[in-house]
Every structure is written in structure tokens, then in C-alpha cells.
Amino acid sequence: MSTTLYVCTTCKADEVHEDDAQRPGAVLHRALTAAGAPEGVEIVGVECLSACKQGAAVALSEPGKWTYVYGRLSAEDAADILQGAAAYAATDDGLVTWRERPVIFRKQSLARIPPFTLPKEPAA
């Protein structure tokens, strides 16, 4: 399986843009695809990650792993985002140790979502 790096292409980051192609999310998506995905990672543009007040936003996901959503990102963060995506892809469960995460992933995490394979009963 491969890791998917979802990039919200409609994120405005509280800016006004007449041209949708100039939205911060679209600019970030172009920067990431131009830089190229790390091995085991696919970059996919999506229309909304519902993090509008925290855009531009990305999400890292893979079946059986924790999913992460990060916000307040820009095209200047592309290298760090790709480094973080590579570290995520290299894990079995999506949990990258704190020190191995790029600083933007340490400080700009919006959500951590458990894999769908976790038991649905609360832990004791």
C-alpha cells in the first residue's frame, strides 16, 4: 500500500483570491507536485479538508495507519511536508517519533485520527 498526501486545493487561508489557481492551497499543491513525491507517497489534490480557518491544509493517510491533518502551511513548507510524508510512509502505524517529525508537523497538527482497524470499545 502507499501513503496518500491529500492537499486541499481550495484553501484560501483567509485570503481573497479572484483566481482559484492563486489560492494558497492550489499554490501549495503545485509546489508539492513540482518537487515530486517521496517513494511510497502519492500526492492527491482534494477540494476541501474542512480546515478553512487553518488553511492551507494537508492530510497524510494510509489504510491501517493513523491519519494526520496539518494546517497553516504554505508553498515554502513543501520540502518539510515531503520529508514528513516520507517519514510517515516508512512507519507501520503512522506514528512518527516526535524528534523525527519536521517542526511544522510538530507545531501545526490539527487532528490525529485513529485507523479504522482499532477496536470500537473504549480502553480500560
Rank of each mutant, 00 (worst) to 15 (best):
C52K: 11
V41S: 07
V27P: 07
V46G: 10
A87C: 01
T67W: 13
D20Y: 06
T3L: 09
K53A: 12
A56K: 04
V41F: 05
W98S: 05
V69G: 04
R30S: 12
K12R: 14
L60D: 00
L60R: 00
E18Y: 02
Q108F: 00
A123E: 13
T9S: 12
L82C: 08
E76V: 03
P63T: 13
V69W: 12
K12W: 03
L49P: 06
L28C: 13
I43A: 02
R30D: 13
T33N: 00
V41K: 05
T3N: 06
A90C: 11
I113H: 04
T97S: 12
G94E: 00
A85K: 12
I81D: 01
V44F: 03
P114H: 02
A21D: 15
K65F: 08
H29N: 06
D19S: 11
T3A: 12
V69Y: 13
A51V: 02
A85H: 11
L110D: 09
D14P: 00
A13E: 06
H17A: 11
R112G: 07
L82D: 08
T3H: 07
A59G: 15
A35I: 00
A124T: 12
H29R: 03
L73M: 08
D77G: 07
T3R: 04
A111M: 04
H29W: 02
A90F: 11
V46I: 15
E100D: 15
T33R: 00
R23D: 08
T4L: 10
Y88S: 08
Q83L: 14
C52G: 10
A57G: 06
W66F: 13
W66N: 08
W66Y: 15
R30E: 14
G84F: 10
L118W: 04
A79F: 04
T33S: 02
W98G: 02
K12D: 10
A87F: 01
H29M: 00
V58L: 11
G71I: 00
V41P: 09
C8W: 05
K120G: 10
Q108N: 15
Q83T: 15
V44E: 14
S109Y: 05
D92Q: 14
